[in-house]
Write a protein that binds this DNA or RNA. Structure first.
Lengths: 206, 206
DNA sequence: AATGATATTGAACTATAGTTCAGGTTATAT
DNA sequence: ATATAACCTGAACTATAGTTCAATATCATT
């Protein structure tokens, strides 16, 4: 289900194929197609954020102002569309964690990690459902998720090395402990208290 | 959708109606029907425990050794069947909390409450999904749930009065904090650590 | 054993949501 | 301006799961 995310590196190459050289046929998407693709991604992002993985294709198409068929023209399946949307989120997440690795106080890194995830889960239901459960994902997303696990591991290890974080905590505990943030009854106020409790519980007991 | 959960209080009354007195027609279910009803409840309990609210009616019928139609004869809808199963669980839960109210150490009460809920959520997926979310429920179940909330409130208040439990915790926080226990990745070992973290976080910070 | 109320059966109905595709439309190169 | 590949449309198809009901079978009473 590879997508045609191709760019034109050198327009001339496509027009004047040189003998001997292996010419690469590169297709530039039509302007309207590119615009629709953007609209679809935007609508899908909003719908998945609001409704979670249960977001309906018809609803996304309606929001994007296109027919369902257009969704399937750009993305082969619902899963593919979801991943196109989520992959971006996961990459932003990974980039953020990188900045936490240089935090002087390792415990602060843990705090910021959880606060970031909490905010994300509050605003994006699909985000919470994806990092919590282990749905069937394509190669790219799985790889990104694995990379994320490695980064989180580093955040945890740093705080464990200083004795601030419980020594027995593992990466997999994080999404589990934050699962409550994806419940429908969660509010920003409750979230505040929720995080305090979790963070307090994560500190090494005396 | 009231169910015919009627018992025969006085067989004679049904056979020899007395003049003047308003006779109440009571139907005793047939023996095979009673047995099937039991089998269905048993199968439903197991299926809901294993598959959560997504358990399929066909699967339950197969497990019970009856046709789907029989399920609908005894219980009007899937929701009704679910509630017949869950109501029992909730009532057992309520009975258990009662015993915690006489616990000399209020904090121990909180600990046991969470341990009980954890064990329940590990063994019964529908239990976790029901106390966490707020699905559309019938009157009886809603009432039982409300009563449960009252009991949990008492457990919390007692521990707050002694200053052991954080003062800002409310009843609604409990299912949220335990939501992670209903995830598919949860194992008994992880559960142990999970509870330690939550309980530690719930203690009044110094 | 006969009778009739009660219960069971399972194929068919319904609703929902993902997916397809034949035919019409549009952007772009010539 | 025209040709044509790319694109879009939306009704229809498929799969799944809850639900119904007419035909059939069974228990319990006489």
């Amino acid at each position: 289900m590879e997508d045609n995310q191709l760019r034109a590196p050198d327009p001339q190459a496509a027009q004047t194929p040189v003998a001997q050289e292996q010419t690469v046929r590169v297709r530039v998407p039509r302007a309207d197609a590119r615009q629709n693709r953007g609209r679809i991604l935007e609508a899908a992002h909003a719908r998945f954020a609001a409704d979670g993985l249960a977001a309906e294709m018809d609803a996304i198409a309606r929001d994007a102002g296109v027919a369902v068929g257009t969704l399937y023209h750009h993305f082969g399946t619902k899963d593919a569309l979801l991943e196109a949307v989520v992959l971006e989120s996961l990459q932003h997440f990974a980039a953020y964690i990188q900045t936490l690795l240089v935090e002087p106080n390792p415990w602060k890194g843990v705090e910021r990690l959880l606060h970031y995830m909490a905010e994300r889960q509050l605003k994006d239901r699909a985000f919470g459902e994806l990092i919590g459960a282990q749905p069937t994902l394509r190669a790219t997303t799985t790889a990104t998720k694995r990379a994320l696990g490695g980064l989180i591991q580093q955040i945890l290890s740093r705080a464990q090395a200083t004795g601030q974080l419980r020594a027995d905590v593992v990466v997999g505990d994080v999404p589990l402990l934050l699962a409550g943030l994806s419940e429908r009854t969660m509010t920003p106020e409750t979230c505040q208290r929720y995080l305090e409790i979790i963070l307090s519980g994560l500190r090494t007991p005396p």
